[in-house]
């Protein structure tokens, strides 16, 4: 066991945190006074940023246009792109 979760597991973790942030975001848009939801959102955002940083270290940037660090080589162009992952069957 090398201490890093596998790529699919790490990606799922990011998808779960990111999705939680989206659902909280939509809720906050119609309930902007809800401080508890806001605290939740901030906590999830922080965890998401951490998990993305780990994934990006291993697999390259997840965001374009300056939102992710570029690294030592331009891995943004690497495959797989998201719909290509979907067609990899065991």
């Amino acid at each position: 066991m090398n201490g890093f979760p596998d790529r699919e597991q790490l990606l799922w973790r990011i998808q779960a945190l990111s999705f939680t942030a989206v659902d909280l975001n939509l809720y906050l848009d119609t309930h902007p006074w809800d401080t508890r939801a806001l605290a939740d959102y901030n906590q999830i955002s922080a965890a998401l940023a951490q998990t993305r940083a780990l994934y990006e270290q291993l697999y390259g940037p997840m965001l374009n246009f300056g939102m992710s660090c570029g690294g030592d080589s331009w891995r943004w162009v690497e495959e797989p792109w998201p719909w290509q992952i979907s067609t990899r069957r065991a």
């Binding site: 799922w12 973790r13 998808q15 779960a16 945190l17 999705f19 939680t20 659902d23 909280l24 809720y27 119609t30 309930h31 809800d34 508890r36 939801a37 939740d40 999830i44």
Partner: peptide, 21 residues
Amino acid sequence: CPQEYITRFNPDEGLCQGTIF
């Protein structure tokens, strides 16, 4: 009817369900 936020799923469960609520 407006939703009242009481509790949410944890992120894994929320993603599976399609909503955290």
